[in-house]
Design a protein around this nucleic acid. Sequence first.
RNA 1: GGAGCAGUACUCAAGAGGCUGAAGAGGCGCCCCUGCUAAGGGUGUAGACCGGGAAUACUGGUGCGAGGGUUCAAAUCCCUCCUGCUCCGCCA
Length: 426
Amino acid sequence: MIDINVIRNNPDIVRENIKKKFQDTKLELVDEVIELDIKNRKLKMEADGLRQKRNENSDKIGLLYREGKQEDAEVLKEEVKEINDKLIDMEKEEVELSTKIKEIMYKIPNFIDDSVPLGKDDAENVEIEKFGEPVVPDYEIPYHADIINNLSGLDKDSSGRTSGSGFYYLMGNIARLHSAMLSYARDFMINNGFTYCIPPFMIRSDVVSGVMSFEEMNNMMYKIEGEDLFLIGTSEHSMIGKFKDQAINENELPLMLTSYSPCFRKEVGAHGIEERGIYRVHQFEKQEMVVICKMEDAMDWYNKMWKFTVDFFRSLDVPVRTLECCSGDLADLKVKSCDIEAWSPRQQKYFEVGSCSTLGDAQARRLNIKAKGEGGNYLVATLNNTVLASPRGLIALIENNYNEDGSINVPEVLRPYMGGLEIIKQ
RNA sequence: GGAGCAGUACUCAAGAGGCUGAAGAGGCGCCCCUGCUAAGGGUGUAGACCGGGAAUACUGGUGCGAGGGUUCAAAUCCCUCCUGCUCCGCCA
């Protein structure tokens, strides 16, 4: 969500931004919202004038009553009644107009950063940098689900019976490895100065609509029946929602938070859930990082944040690369975003394990998150990034630490979390 | 889930239909005094959001947990909801 003042004063740069995102069908929204905005302000001026008159008269009525001039008061009462009659329709229109304006403003994409590569869709995302040698062993790496299965670490038959497709039972040392990774990810971020946080796993609809677009909401979020509650798709939702309608003391910025949560996603849309294994699932667990900072610091933080994830995976000896989201693939709220992809020696390509984004002040504007400074309040920037999402991260780890005999090496940093175990084998 | 109480500005808190944008205190700003000291006196300070305006001038509107309602007029009366506290019930 961008500032409507920009549309008032400089609609061309808004149009240009829409074009850069290949959303030409949204161009007409700019003119539409300009027109509605003019109407709205004109109406507000008129209505404010009437309200002023009403307030003045009401005060007078009070005075007249005290002076015992009942009759004069009655005359004024009638006058105010007339004003109120006029206001009924006007106020209804005010609500309609501002609702429409808000709807359109929600649809107009946030300004992308100048550095974002232009492109239509994910096919045009750009590899930025590789970290670590993408090793291809001279033996074949089986499909991740088969590796885990052979180590008695996965039971999808049972989860199918209890919960349907898209769920899993992780078992034994594999389950422990999954938890070890998450614990390590938590400590990794704590050691980098972040504050650990366990948020609510359900949030209300007003928070949901503040942190994501409408389509995302439909495709991702599970709603609790009979309640105004949704299961979170990522802890970013509750972590950003935490600050809804808050004015944070300027000297507390930047807020550096790392949160753990299970994540629930419907995965409706392009890919669906039909994939075998545990790559695309309805439920996973994630260690997330969230930063709230001043707008001018956002880009620095963005660059620090994706680097944390790279460092994290490198500390597990998993080769990764960063893939920058092109303009057309960038969600409407985002200023800039990149995926962290891990190397898959089986597929001999990289696959997504995390995503780092700066939303600028778009989320803050939607949710009314401000900083309290000396010169007044101002909107903050919000950023989020995955440290580790598992089972996806688990898959990366397993493939890259797979031995020809079917066993898996436990990376050194994880051994303290595994009771010293060095290798997982049959 | 049941019962009771409460939600006012940075904080505490008064207010119980109009004279309340909101007493008082703390805090904070400034000034003064001072050997009796984690001190005294004086004085000032009210936010936020949306409009008009070149404007940091001036000005209108909104606003006392949220949303409705009654009224010429609502922090104040009524309804619904949310949140917190206390008690009961239930339960990891």
